[in-house]
Design a protein around this nucleic acid. Structure first.
Lengths: 220, 220, 220, 220
DNA sequence: CATGAATGAGGTTTCATTCAT
DNA sequence: GATGAATGAAACCTCATTCAT
């Protein structure tokens, strides 16, 4: 009786498994919201692709907007969790920052939905993630990690300038995020397929060089 | 026929002035689309805020999506026109690039709708602007201008590395665009108001320094 | 051009006649609301029986609840208008009161929807008619009329007691309204068909006698 | 088996006590149905306020409508039981009738839900209470009681007219019921708070006077 | 006796769009 | 060039009810 929940989750074919159902809904929602945005997404489409009754979305998440907020929170958590798994604190400063840049870039390649979700959330002035209490905490840890690497690098002389870790983070995020975020309009305008593997690899290198160069350069 | 339009536009209160009406609709649409995206925008809201009958939107633009495409095209034209007015070709290379960076940043401060419109269009994989024939042309001129400055700078020794003008453009755009595009989520997560005048000014300087530093640094 | 509206309303078959359409909706709504109450009524059923598109109800009335409020207001107006057409002020006091009682009773026989509408509105604690500004005014006139008859009767000695016109009105309304309002439960419990013509006529006489007797009796 | 229930009801905290659970559901239902009517009531709301699982309502009562019928029957029984506890047969005729009037009025003050329930049941043309077999029986006794008092009063000369007990009952019920039933719309229209203690006391006296006066008056 | 998970039908409302003038 | 009236499809959401345990 005690391990009832455990028992059920061990059964992958159980139909009455709340956790599994919740997750199926969340995954389907992420896909739909990232493809069409909050207002373009269709509750019916989510239910269908999750293979559940429409009403179940309401049963578990209340309404469309709360479901959207849950998707956002989950997406951010995924990012932060992966970041922490990098163990940057154990690396020498240059390696740490470089690894972080590459990770930031690659994460977006592998989680394309993240870009669209965030853009759409910005359209709504971040009102959904503002409600989350967990997210700022997760971010604090990241800031400490980057800040630590920068300080160590400065002490060891491999970095030449004092940089606010948040500022650096924003620059890295800018360079990584924009490319994926605007790949369609840029490709259209430059008439050049920026989504090709070659272009992506080139860009990745370009970003690493720009950031590392910046840190290695004495401030004016 | 020719002076008919002229005559009418001289009368600012004319109700039956096609050009004026078209413009009113376009302006209202830009606002609505940038605030809510294509699917979040409401045709009725546009008509109301433009002060015209809903049916007129259809009369002038066909349907919602064509109206959206018109707004996008107009927005891009505005940007490119302003860029050309900078006359970068007449400036020394460093001044030219620096001026371009600052312009790119400031334009987004003053035209916030541009950021949202572009993000939303990327959600739709740029399918609307792909239809435009004018936009690539406008862009070519820009590439030439930046490329020219880079070459002159390299020849004069003020820039130390060979850079593809498109790559540079993307980096500049990344750094400028992302900050405005993601100001809400970043503010929420960092719990710091990145939309304040101070933060914006700091960011602007940071970007200029990063790009100019990059160009001045010998490639690894 | 000027008498455009007039012209249209003269055409009984016009499809694009706002006034006629509004009225059709209102009539169908009155029927549906009186039969099923606010929450039991179906917007779709109203549209169907009015012979119009569902959306049109929203176009004209905003939402279900505003439509309900309009129905209530219209129903009350009908009652008050009919009351005023009685010209009670021109009659001797006894005749006036008696005519009023009979009218009050008969009105409910002929406008059965009125009873149900009012009962349902009381379930909602009169929140819809509270919003109406016209209704209290209409009622004031009635109070004056009844008050006048009572005073004249007292002066002439045909009535023996001083009665607050509002109190009398409530008593009359009670006796008339309840019978129609509770005809179903009473019939069920007494196992006697109180809706038959005979019973109704008997009741009508009984009420007149009770009220007139009361007024003729010296107060204890 | 017999004393099982007894045993359990001695334990007031038992969760598995059928009788207690049934009663909790019934009480919650009475509240919900009287507030919102049959169609406005929500099964989920009842379950929640009864503190039980929704499915239990179905287990005990079959469906929403049967639950509604049970509530109605219980309410009526409460009324008739209280009426019989008055022991009117043991009183002199005038006292008996007067006591009955006052009781009828006060009962509705203290059991406001009764008014709403009955109104709503009339909206449904009494179809639920029609199914009850007990209710007519209960009513017969009442008729006999009132009839007895009327006859005795006539014989003793304190009442001056022959009145059908059912007719008298209806008049009393009308005057008592309507006031509570329509207190909201009447207050709104007269712009006077008829729910205040003063108004209620005044009304109660008025009704007693009107009925007793009627009985004391020789028929025309 | 009791519960949480799940469903299907249908409810109100919104939306882009078209018709008739 | 401009309007108000009207539509059909589909959106979100709610509801009473049943299933599986």
């Amino acid at each position: 009786m005690k391990n009832k929940t455990t028992t059920i989750s061990q059964n992958p074919k159980a139909t009455r498994d709340a956790k599994r159902t919740r997750l199926k809904i969340l995954t389907a929602s992420r896909e739909e919201f990232s493809r069409h945005g909050l207002s373009g997404a269709r509750v019916g489409a989510i239910a269908k692709s999750a293979g559940v009754n429409k009403q179940l979305l309401y049963y578990y998440f209340g309404d469309k907007e709360k479901l959207y907020a849950s998707v956002l929170e989950q997406a951010y958590e995924e990012l932060r969790t992966a970041e922490q798994a990098l163990n940057l604190d154990d690396l020498p400063p240059k390696e740490a920052i470089e690894k972080f840049i590459k990770f930031s870039f690659d994460f977006l390649v592998e989680h394309k939905y993240f870009v669209s979700l965030l853009n759409d959330e910005n359209l709504h002035e971040a009102k959904h993630i503002k409600k989350s209490k967990r997210l700022p905490l997760l971010h604090d840890r990241l800031r400490t990690t980057i800040g630590g690497a920068l300080e160590r690098g400065l002490a060891q002389g491999v970095f030449k300038r004092q940089v606010d870790p948040a500022d650096l983070y924003i620059s890295i995020a800018s360079l990584c995020f924009f490319y994926h975020s605007n790949v369609f309009t840029m490709s259209a305008i430059f008439q050049r397929d920026l989504a090709s593997e070659d272009e992506i690899a080139k860009r990745r290198a370009h970003i690493v060089e720009m950031i590392m160069g910046f840190l290695a350069l004495e401030s004016a």
